[in-house]
């Protein structure tokens, strides 16, 4: 049984229903992790679950059993909005990077699963610390240029929050990528329209975000972050456009808190943990498909 489970983790899944099953388990992991420690960011984590499951179980060329920092010959992923660490930790462990049981240590003392992703304790799958926003795109572009220098055909993926677009460093990096024709990167923005203090429109509107990226010289695409078929189709289309001298940005439309009805579509659950009753209510909506940690 365990061998079968491992095989299931290692194989690259193509079946939409299987991806949905993984996503359901990841969402369970997220709310359970955050509930247990009564701390963390469930909203954005739930909203990006389908994307990360799609990347790690369908799209990326990776081998968790051979993980190392350099990731030569493999695709790399950088999470710039590090506060949605619960979804990343769950997906990494479910994909076989580290034991699923470790999810229970999230945000506890002596854990490798820090509140925001960190490399100090060597957690497999993580290549740079993130949390202070706006830094991940620069780091990913550096890694993408090293891949080019090394003749490495691996693709570099990134994920950013939409609120993170308010950080100036993002636009420094945007300008740099186009100038240097970095065309082995596929970046994604979690475009849920919410940030801590309210909606983006109210806090600091981004204007026409697609036009901004186009004006900075990027190829811009859009996708539905909760439709596995559309995720696959768009990411495949993006891959087909690599090597054309332009970096690629995908605006991914998501609902913050997706999959748990009372957390969905609001910024209220950005950084709040559910209580016992709310946990039960959330878990009732999320079938246990791969076994809880």
């Amino acid at each position: 049984m365990e061998a079968l489970f491992l095989l299931r983790q290692i194989m690259i899944m193509k079946n939409t229903q299987e991806l949905q099953e993984v996503a359901s388990q990841v969402r369970r992991d997220i709310v359970r992790m955050v509930h247990k420690v009564q701390s963390g960011h469930p909203g954005g984590s739930l909203g990006c679950t389908d994307f990360l499951v799609s990347l790690y179980f369908d799209q990326m060329n990776i081998d968790p059993s051979k993980w190392d920092m350099d990731g030569k010959g493999e695709d790399l992923f950088f999470l710039s909005n590090g506060h949605i660490s619960p979804v990343w930790y769950s997906v990494l462990s479910r994909r076989g990077y580290f034991p699923v049981a470790e999810l229970g240590t999230f945000r506890h003392i002596n854990s490798r699963l820090q509140g925001h992703p960190a490399t100090e304790e060597g957690l497999e799958g993580i290549r740079v610390a993130s949390g202070s926003l706006g830094q991940g795109l620069s780091v990913a572009l550096g890694a993408a240029q090293t891949k080019k220098l090394n003749g490495d055909k691996g693709i570099v993926y990134t994920l950013h929050g939409d609120g993170e677009m308010q950080e100036g460093q993002i636009w420094e990096a945007a300008m740099y990528a186009a100038h240097h024709k970095i065309d082995n990167i596929i970046s994604t923005i979690d475009y849920n329209g919410q940030q801590i203090d309210g909606s983006l429109e109210d806090v600091m509107s981004l204007g026409n975000l697609g036009d901004k990226w186009r004006a900075f010289g990027w190829e811009v695409m859009e996708m539905n972050g909760h439709d596995f078929e559309n995720l696959r189709e768009t990411l495949n289309k993006a891959k087909a456009q690599l090597g054309n001298g332009k970096p690629i940005m995908i605006l991914m439309h998501t609902d913050m808190g997706h999959g748990v009805d009372f957390m969905s579509g609001t910024h209220e659950w950005h950084g709040i943990a559910p209580n016992d009753e709310q946990l039960a209510k959330a878990l009732a909506q999320l079938p246990e498909t791969l076994g809880d940690y």
Partner: peptide, 26 residues
């Protein structure tokens, strides 16, 4: 010239780029 990267007046980006370039052995 292939190992020299002009960043422009954008030092925050330069530090991030440098961090990323180490991944893969530079």
């Amino acid at each position: 010239p292939d190992r020299f990267f002009q960043v422009g007046i954008a030092e925050a980006n330069m530090m991030g780029l440098a961090a990323g370039m180490t991944i893969g052995g530079k």
